[in-house]
């Protein structure tokens, strides 16, 4: 119970930290906070405009009052205002959140399933052949930068073989390449996690006894060992989802998917600071929710953990 609780508390602290960071960044950095908050350079403003912005953004009030206004903008769901795009940040992000989820959720599920199945089989028998080629393969895969993976996939399947579309997200076929990129990037860490946990479990006595009772390897793996590693594995899913969302920044840019990651880079290029901060806020929120849900799920699958005090 303690471990799951601790992870949930950490997720909430992370979220609060990002909120404070978002508030302090434009105000404490050298330079006019107005430039950061509007994205318009000082020279481009007339005095009247400047006064208008200063008042609209409450910069003429004290820091604590400003923080209250800032929290208010988070609570009423606008997340600030993008002066560059002339729209509330939340509405800009709301349009872009689905494409990101559409590629990150399937890739998280597929990579976790792959990591679990492969990790169970090679961690159970670390001396056997599957482990001896699969683990090095995963280590090499882990060293491939995601942009290299994405570019090579586009090149081979999009340009040379002309099999799959590589721009946009208008059909199911459009999903294949971006999801494959993310899956190939995320599977190694999942696989290694499971493999190492299983390798520890395989040395335990209950495995030995199960073997002596003549149970099949498959039975031992899936109904004995899996139960014991399920908790930590599910907990890792939450963090994995956070990683998938940030990993999709690269993928969305290469595959021209109009998701949150692409929105983030566009906002950075156009110096739209409120939007940049909004994306950070939303992605941290998604991550925190995913972590809390996965911790709850880890407790749900293992009733014993709810009573244990470690």
């Amino acid at each position: 119970m303690r471990r799951e609780l601790r992870s949930m508390v950490t997720a909430v602290i992370c979220f609060l930290l990002v909120i404070v960071l978002n508030f302090l960044l434009p105000r404490l950095l050298p330079g006019n906070p107005l430039a950061y908050l509007t994205g318009v350079s000082e020279e481009g403003l007339t005095t009247v405009q400047e006064e208008y912005y200063v008042h609209a953004l409450h910069l003429d009030e004290g820091l604590s009052r400003q923080f209250a206004h800032y929290l208010g903008s988070l609570l009423d769901g606008t997340l600030g205002y993008s002066f560059k795009k002339d729209a509330p940040v939340s509405s800009l992000i709301a349009d872009r959140i689905w494409p990101t989820l559409k590629i990150s959720v399937p890739s998280l599920l597929i990579s976790s399933a792959l990591g679990l199945v492969l990790g169970l089989s090679s961690g159970f028998a670390t001396k056997r052949r599957t482990d001896s080629w699969l683990t090095p393969l995963m280590i090499v895969l882990n060293a491939v930068p995601s942009f290299l993976m994405a570019l090579s996939l586009v090149l081979v399947f999009g340009f040379k073989l002309r099999l799959l579309p590589y721009a946009g997200l208008s059909s199911f076929a459009h999903l294949i390449l971006p999801v494959t990129t993310l899956v190939l990037g995320m599977t190694p860490s999942r696989y290694l996690l499971v493999r190492n946990m299983v390798a520890v479990q395989a040395k335990e006595r209950y495995v030995l006894y199960a073997r002596q009772r003549g149970l099949s390897d498959r039975r031992i793996r899936y109904s004995y060992i899996l139960g014991n590693i399920a908790g930590p594995f599910i907990m890792a899913l939450g963090i994995g989802f956070g990683l998938a969302v940030s990993g999709s920044v690269v993928v969305e840019n290469i595959f021209s998917i109009n998701g949150m990651g692409k929105l983030l880079t566009e906002a950075v290029y156009t110096l739209d600071y409120p939007l940049v901060q909004g994306v950070l806020f939303v992605s941290t929120a998604i991550m925190a929710i995913a972590i809390i849900l996965s911790d709850l799920a880890a407790l749900a699958v293992n009733p014993k953990r709810r009573l244990e005090n470690e």
Partner: peptide, 23 residues
């Protein structure tokens, strides 16, 4: 120790992009 956990959990790439855009 709690700080270590928080730092490990932050979405690193997004945070770095945001901080990089400010600094």
């Amino acid at each position: 120790d709690g700080l270590i956990d928080v730092m490990a959990m932050l979405p690193k790439l997004v945070v770095l992009i945001v901080l990089g855009s400010f600094i």
